[in-house]
Design a protein around this nucleic acid. Structure first.
Lengths: 114, 114
DNA sequence: CATACTGCTTCACTGCCATAATACAGCGAT
DNA sequence: ATCGCTGTATTATGGCAGTGAAGCAGTATG
């Protein structure tokens, strides 16, 4: 949703997600280390670790202790499916409800970008 | 623990908004008192007051101290326009971005409800 | 004035987020 | 084995948001 009023570790998680979905990090690639990513994003290493933690719990990254964290096999599809399901179940319904309440048509939303 | 991911005072705010937009409370009508609405919604009076507070700051309700809170003149249109603007500016863009990223077509969203 | 409603203010508790300073543990190259 | 990287655990602290209890303040009515 809004990236401005969101906890840092969730924003970091979104950045990783998008990087994987967009192919910036392919399966088997090593993700930035917690320390490197922390410096890059101006965050605390522990906050980055907290963001990474969710991915390993979901099996999207595998940890080689002492080496680094790597994008797991099938992570891209798995991530895509999970986000699609979440979007359809949790994101879209309130959006559609709001559109109906405010009489917003899809046309006026799609015109705004060529 | 927190099955309700959204703060109570924001949910209350949404309820008020919808009631005004749907015409349940017309302009000049008195809104439920903080205590009455608190009991009705199973919330704390202070939480209700906090929800109401945002509306008076936006000039959508006028306060007659010691009497009650009343829907301001032009509140419905004002509220509708504000929510439309917010939707188009803040809500829709990330939704659309996510749809593109996940290759979600509008068709599969609109089919689910006939 | 007394009563009963109204909104609102103050103080405090709780939980979550982010940060910090260490310290520990695993791996690879020199 | 040592050095330098990797992730992880511990404990503590500051800040902030959400909620709640009690009481203060304004208004209408009799």
């Amino acid at each position: 949703m809004n990236n401005t009023s969101k906890p840092v570790y969730l924003k970091l998680r979104d950045i990783i997600s998008e990087s994987i979905l967009d192919g910036e990090y392919s399966e088997g690639d090593m993700l930035p280390s917690v320390r490197a990513f922390a410096i890059e994003q101006g965050a605390n290493p522990l906050t980055v670790a907290k963001a990474y933690q969710g991915f390993q719990e979901d099996g999207l990254v595998t940890v080689k202790r002492g080496v680094g964290m790597f994008v797991a096999s099938g992570a891209k599809i798995k991530l895509r499916d999970a986000q699609r399901a979440d979007f359809i179940k949790n994101i879209w319904p309130p959006v559609e409800r709001q559109m109906k309440r405010l009489n917003i048509e899809l046309d006026e939303l799609l015109e705004n970008e060529a």
